[in-house]
Design a protein around this nucleic acid. Structure first.
Lengths: 210, 210
DNA sequence: CAAAACATAGGGGAAACTCCCTAATTGAAG
DNA sequence: CTTCAATTAGGGAGTTTCCCCTATGTTTTG
């Protein structure tokens, strides 16, 4: 009796194979689709509306939280277990806030995920030990306000003070003040150090893939 | 008859499982050790001196080329197939220069690796299609001179024009000119973009691995 | 050898950044 | 209700980038 469906999305074939095997071994569950990029992940979610979906948040063609929210939009009842290979703390934090059901890193013990399946299917939430530790560590070091984080992210994406001011509808002087506050909070003395910090913490949107 | 030995080093359990299964299925081969971090990878290489070793270059405790060279030192006859999950072009280039036998990305088709095993065992070299494309793309874009690369690296590590000038014993103006040339070569228009590029390419010393 | 690339160093000006202030409004915490 | 943090916005001075030049000596390459 197979009444539970699952979709596996990951661009690493080995990981995909492992997860498919694991999910197919789960009683009553069948993997009905596999995706190796963000776009087909969303498509599969739309067509199959699976009960469970594993989602890598770093795949070609569409990255990060965008894929998550798209899947969510087209199949709101699907329970989504996010697997992050890259350890982008900011992304994890966002997904946590966006309400991902499961959060695992690819370094997590796989049995952790296996044991989580029934919980996830019931609508529960599971955050693996190492993912939780990562989020904690991040939130404690990040004493930046929401606005400051937003502006830091824009800076890290190569935007200048002026363009940031324009996109946010603020005075350039305000943006400058925020940046100044960020720098004193993070104890850095130049854009270079600030950038190094920001990029280290994974605040880049697009090109952390290469 | 099992006369070939192999060691699998990868911090992702799913990947490890997949590779172990694949290698054990190879005629006459047996996986005699698994490592989930750089240190135990080196230890296993030292104790087992396997014929073949798969090596992830982004693992906890010791990263990148250091692990490769250590393995090489303790077991020079072991054929090493490098798997890179993170797409650090600089690292790939270095490993290529250091003479890694096999180079695959985790996005590679696994059959590519499977078919490569006999070639690797004979001492041949195999670079998967996508890894080769990556290296080509990198070497063609990186037209920076030695001095320019050095200065870019210093910039990426948070040094200012002045301090760079002092450490290199140059005029600040010279450093500035180099930076300017770098920026026009890389087609970026600000420190922010330059930093983004540099960090992406893995020019940071310590913490580009997070 | 000649040409090209590289490394060195500087002038000058517009723009951006860095750091010192003040100050009004808002919303949350005690 | 009061205090505190956050957000907004600005003044002003000094420094650094950024981008345009010129110029000389060396090294590499065709």
């Amino acid at each position: 009796m197979r009444n539970l469906t699952a979709v596996v999305a990951d661009d690493h074939q080995l990981i995909r194979d492992g997860l498919v095997k694991l999910l197919n071994a789960y009683r009553g569950m069948e993997v009905v689709g596999e995706a190796d990029n963000g776009i087909s992940a969303v498509t599969l979610a739309k067509t199959h509306k699976p009960d469970l979906m594993t989602l890598d948040i770093a795949m070609p063609h569409a990255q990060g939280i965008a894929v998550y929210t798209e899947v969510r939009r087209w199949s709101p009842d699907t329970k989504i277990a996010v697997f992050s290979g890259i350890t982008s703390v900011a992304l994890m934090r966002d997904l946590y806030a966006a309400g991902a059901h499961g959060m695992f890193t690819k370094r997590s013990d796989i049995s952790e995920f296996e044991q989580s399946i029934p919980i996830l299917l019931k609508g529960g939430r599971v955050i693996s030990a190492d993912a939780a530790a990562m989020i904690d560590a991040a939130t404690e070091t990040t004493s930046l306000s929401a606005r400051e984080q937003q502006i830091l992210s824009l800076i890290a994406n190569g935007q200048t003070t002026k363009t940031i001011a324009k996109t946010l509808g603020l005075s350039p002087k305000t943006v400058e003040n925020h940046r100044s506050n960020i720098m004193s909070k993070l104890e850095v003395g130049s854009m270079a150090e600030l950038l190094a910090y920001a990029l280290r913490e994974g605040l880049l949107d697009s090109q952390n893939q290469l």
